[in-house]
């Protein structure tokens, strides 16, 4: 077995297969765009807190309109770029099986928290079918960003707690997206 593997690798090397790569290639534009998105979101949230109590922090303010328009466009662009990196669906189901012991406590905690509050978030896990791994990570960030706008629209302003929750969620999603995009750097 070992001998066959060695022979195979020798043949592969001599045939010119000097390096292999699985998954999507690294895209510096997406990397830069993610950093820029995170920075502008942090600045926006800080500005909303500094202006809390006046019209500048409202959902309808010019600053809010400008931020949501530009950040949504940036996320759409990243989704498009990421989708063009590879048309191979992210094989995360296989990793899910291996990661189940690590994953279960988090999912159970989510279930318990929802049950405790009498809430059930619907399951739309099929919506990421066909996406490569980078696109899945950016899509999750896009969903998190939609929550920020939905909160702002619903409450009119972002309270300190709501801003903190959205800031934390977006930071986590950006970190996961960056790590995914940089896997093959």
């Amino acid at each position: 077995m070992l001998r066959s593997l060695t022979v195979f690798l020798v043949v592969a090397t001599l045939s010119g297969c000097l390096t292999v790569q699985f998954g999507e290639p690294y895209d510096k534009v997406i990397d830069d765009e993610l950093n820029s998105f995170q920075k502008s979101t942090a600045e926006f949230l800080k500005s909303m807190q500094q202006n809390s109590g006046n019209a500048k922090s409202s959902y309808g303010s010019d600053e809010s309109k400008k931020y949501y328009a530009s950040s949504s466009a940036s996320l759409s662009n990243m989704m498009l770029r990421a989708s063009l990196l590879s048309d191979r669906e992210c094989p995360s189901q296989r990793v899910a099986k291996i990661a189940t012991p690590a994953l279960t406590p988090s999912v159970e905690r989510l279930d318990r928290a929802e049950a405790g509050l009498g809430i059930s978030s619907s399951n739309n896990e099929g919506t990421f079918a066909g996406m490569n791994c980078s696109t899945v990570a950016i899509w999750s960030l896009q969903e998190t960003h939609k929550n920020l706008e939905a909160d702002h629209r619903e409450y009119g302003r972002l309270s300190a707690g709501v801003a903190q929750l959205n800031g934390l969620s977006i930071d986590q999603s950006v970190r996961v997206a960056l790590t995914t995009v940089r896997a093959n750097k």
Binding site: Q21, G23, P91, V107, S121, T144, E154, T180
Partner: peptide
């Protein structure tokens, strides 16, 4: 609002899995 955030947290679990998949594949390479 809570429902929206819980939903996003579930999506985040999926994103973490995608990230781990990318890392495992890069490690294999």
């Amino acid at each position: 609002g809570a429902r929206r955030h819980f939903k996003a947290a579930r999506y985040h679990v999926i994103a973490i899995l995608a990230m781990l998949t990318a890392l495992v594949e890069a490690a294999a390479a």
